[in-house]
Nucleic acid binder design. Structure first.
Length: 259
DNA sequence: AACGGATCCAACCGCCAGTAC
DNA sequence: TGTACTGGCGGTTGGATCCGT
């Protein structure tokens, strides 16, 4: 049988929908034959999962959905089908398309901002080792740094040494997520330091994502932060908006070396 | 109004893993 | 054990639409 390709007609959609509603999901290769469609099984499956399946959301992605996608992409990479399991009503194809058409650019912008700040940190280290200056406190709010960097007013080469020294370290939001695990919570709430290697300046060795990152918990954390705590303190760590995807440790904490 | 480039998105393609025979 | 078939997945394509000039 000659298989038709291209866009599906409303009549074809109706045939496929009626067939699956009446017979349920089964062997896709037999669906086009039994449903009277001149399509191959793959095409039928794709049409059903991406367009006809009940419960699918139509329309644009919400900001919250975008945040979840960006967070998951940071953790999973291009695992669109896994991401779709965390976004009810969204197909993997829809997520993939939205990523390529919009979120990839948004993510690249954030990466660019991150890269600029990273180079600032590198210069900080060099200056710090040269002058034995260890103060890394900041007189500027992180949001101000973000605004400057975003607006392109804060190219690293334009930074004064003084400003360099005032920029606090930053940690990606995804790297922060494991801190909310039970173990980390205990470490931060019992008054003890996280590890011995944090005494000299700042160490992020305890802030790396765990190999068995619990995605469900991460999503929960994201939802919690997004809905309940857009700007708050967790112990000595100051959280900023999820939009920026990273946080700054407070200057007092850094000076005390107790991170 | 016409044109061309940019963007979006539905659908196809090719690969891979699992399964039946 | 090898082969064919099937479903699932990620990458890519191509047509439709949008938008600026």
């Amino acid at each position: 049988m000659k298989c038709k390709k291209g866009l599906w007609s409303p009549d074809e959609d109706k045939k496929l929908r009626d067939y699956i509603v009446n017979n349920g999901l089964g062997c896709w290769s037999s669906v086009p034959i039994n449903a009277g469609l001149q399509r191959n099984g793959k095409s039928c499956r794709l049409r059903w999962t991406n367009y006809l399946r009940p419960g699918l959301k139509r329309g644009g992605f919400t900001k919250h959905e975008e945040k979840i996608i960006m967070t998951l992409h940071g953790m999973l990479g291009n695992k669109w089908s896994q991401m779709s399991r965390h976004l009810p009503g969204r197909s993997d194809n829809e997520i993939k398309n939205h990523w390529h058409s919009y979120l990839k650019k948004k993510s690249a912008k954030l990466e660019n901002i991150k890269a600029k700040s990273m180079s600032v940190d590198t210069v900080n280290e060099e200056l710090s080792s040269a002058s034995s200056v260890k103060s890394r406190g900041s007189s500027l709010e992180p949001s101000q740094h973000m605004e400057e960097l975003s607006a392109g007013h804060a190219e690293p080469s334009d930074y004064s040494k003084e400003v360099h020294l005032k920029i606090p370290p930053k940690i990606l939001f995804s790297e922060w997520l494991p801190l909310n695990s039970d173990e980390s919570q205990e470490a931060t709430t019992d008054g003890g330091s996280l590890s011995d290697d944090t005494q000299e300046g700042i160490s992020v060795s305890n802030l790396q994502p765990s190999p068995e990152l619990d995605i469900e918990n991460s999503i929960y954390d994201l939802i919690f932060e997004d809905n309940m705590c857009p700007n708050y303190n967790i112990g000595d760590v100051r959280m900023y908006s999820c939009d920026e995807l990273y946080y700054y440790a407070s200057p007092s904490l850094l000076n005390s070396g107790s991170l």
